[in-house]
Each structure stands twice: as structure tokens, then as C-alpha cells.
Design a protein around this nucleic acid. Structure first.
Lengths: 151, 151
DNA sequence: ATTGAAATGTTGCATATGCAACGGATAACC
DNA sequence: GGTTATCCGTTGCATATGCAACATTTCAAT
């Protein structure tokens, strides 16, 4: 019974969390200090910027973010004049969200910085390793994860 | 001026966050539902379990967790009788934290589940890919990240 | 048609979090 | 030695978050 001892620093969920936290908070400095955005607000902006106009529920599903978190971020962004709500005529429960001119202009500059940051990351890791990382992460993020171990 | 458009779903910090969030919340079900632990409490337990007795500040540094977050987790764990504080005689600012018998027993069962979860993850990804992922994540989590792009 | 189930977005409330400030203790420095 | 800076752990407070509940609207089933 050579029982391999549990090692936190080899536990993938922990390593994923650490890597995400460090990388994310590093880039967070950009949109926080320079643009006064929170993470969820940046997430909403970047969704609208890259995926086009969409509803809050769609953003919530696409980003696996609590719908109430999205709702509050949208409210703030609307108050700041960065996002516009267009009530749908077909489904009166929903409203389509779209960037205002100010919102789009913010997205353009911020996404340029994001691109640069991403490039630096990939260069530091090595482009081939970064590409493999991206593929594996997408698998973890999107595809089905293993079921929880049955006890 | 073929400007490559920013794509959120190719942005490494975003993918890292998504993968970490999904993986982490999946395993969180285990320690939350079965053992009533929060993520930070599990983090403290697993640090003490794998790295031995240490101070709150050491846990904070090792896990890149706010010291106030650690402080509160420790207070809760102490109240639940899972962690013991041993004031240091040499440095009277610090207190060494250690698992009680109950705490160690909890760690033993929980780390066994963590091992199983990790194994399932690695099997799902493929063991070689998982090993490469681990190495890359450690690099991102521990090593220096690229400086923020100069504007 | 009608009834029941599900989706959308918001709010209330309890809890979690981040940040600054604090008291106490040690370290650094001159 | 004495002064200053730094470290440890805690607390106060403002904000963020998660979860349940809600009103409204659409969808499903019969």
C-alpha cells in the first residue's frame, strides 16, 4: 500500500486557480487603473465587443457568470453610458445589449491592450506551448468535465 | 493594416479563468457538501496537511491569498475544532497553526477525494497532456509573469 | 384555451471580500 | 541605544457576491 501522498502543488484545480488568479489580476490592473472597470464589467464589454449585441442571459451562459452579477454589471455600464438596452419586440422579457460609441471606443483600446498582454504571455511561454495550453484550457472550460467521483 | 480582431475566446487570461472556475467549482461541491468547507478553509487545511505546521502569513504568501481572508478562515477552523493555534515563543507576533486530530482526519479523507478527482481529470485529458498542462500552469502561477505592456 | 413549467431580469438579504488602519512585536539602521 | 521601518494578525467598513424569491412573459402539454 504505497499510498501516494496528496500534494497540493500537483493538484490541477489548485494550479489552475493560481495561474488564473495571477494572470488575471495582472491584466486587471489595466482595465481597473486605466479604465475604471471591474472584472465583470470588462467581461460584459468584451462579450458585446467580440460577439456582437446580445442579451444578459446569453452573456451569463457564455461566460458561466451568475446572471445577477451580469445584471448589476449591465446596470453600472448603462449608468456610465457605455452600454445601451434595446427592449426586444419579439420577446418582451429580454432586452438586447449593445455598446454605445463610448463603449465601443473603450473596447477598441482595451482589446488592443489585451492583445498585447496575450502576446507577451505567449512569447514568455513559447508560442507552441501556449497554443497547446490554449487547447487544453478550452477543453476544460467548455467540454464536459469528469463526473464527481462516486463515493 | 490587417488588424487581427480581439477574440475573447482566445484570450489566455479568460480561458484560464474559465477552466479554473469550472474545475474548481466542480471539486468545491465535494468539500462543501460533504464537509461543509469553503474554498479558503479547504485551502488552509490542505496547506497544513501537505506542508506541515505553518503560520497564517506563510499560508497567505504560499497561496497568494489575502492575509485577512486567511485570518478569517483560521478563526472559523479554530472555532470548529479543526485547527489549533500555538503561539510562538521566539517571535511573539506569530502563532503556528496545526491541524487537530479532527482536522487531520478530515484532511486525510478529503485529500483522498482530491487525488481521485485529479486522477479523473488527468485521465480525461490524457496523462501526457495533463503533465504538460501542469508544468505550464506552474510556470504561470509561480514564475514571474511578463511585465504589463508599457503604454 | 388553459393550466403548468420554464425563461428573463431584478431585488432583498446574508455572507464574503478587499483595503486601509490598527496595536503589538521584531528588524534594520545609524 | 534609539529611532524608523517592517512584519504579524485582527478589525471596521464599504463593496461584491451568491442564493432564493419575485413579477413578467413565453413555452409546453393536453
Amino acid at each position: 500500500m504505497t499510498q501516494r501522498a496528496f500534494r497540493l502543488d500537483h493538484f490541477l484545480p489548485y494550479l489552475l486557480n493560481q495561474a488564473a488568479e495571477r494572470t488575471g489580476s495582472k491584466f486587471e490592473q489595466v482595465y481597473r487603473d486605466t479604465y475604471g472597470l471591474t472584472r465583470t464589467r470588462w467581461r460584459v464589454i468584451s462579450h458585446l465587443g467580440t460577439l456582437g449585441d446580445m442579451t444578459a442571459a446569453a452573456i451569463s451562459r457564455s461566460s458561466h457568470t451568475e446572471k445577477t452579477k451580469v445584471s448589476r454589471a449591465v446596470a453600472a455600464l448603462e449608468a456610465e453610458g457605455l452600454v445601451l438596452r434595446v427592449p426586444s419586440t419579439v420577446d418582451r422579457r429580454t432586452e438586447l445589449l449593445q455598446l454605445t460609441d463610448a463603449g465601443r471606443s473603450l473596447f477598441v483600446s482595451l482589446s488592443a491592450e489585451a492583445d498585447r498582454f496575450d502576446q507577451e504571455l505567449r512569447t514568455a511561454l513559447g508560442t507552441d506551448i501556449a497554443a497547446r495550453l490554449e487547447q487544453t484550457l478550452r477543453q476544460l472550460a467548455v467540454d464536459a468535465l469528469p463526473k464527481l467521483p462516486d463515493k
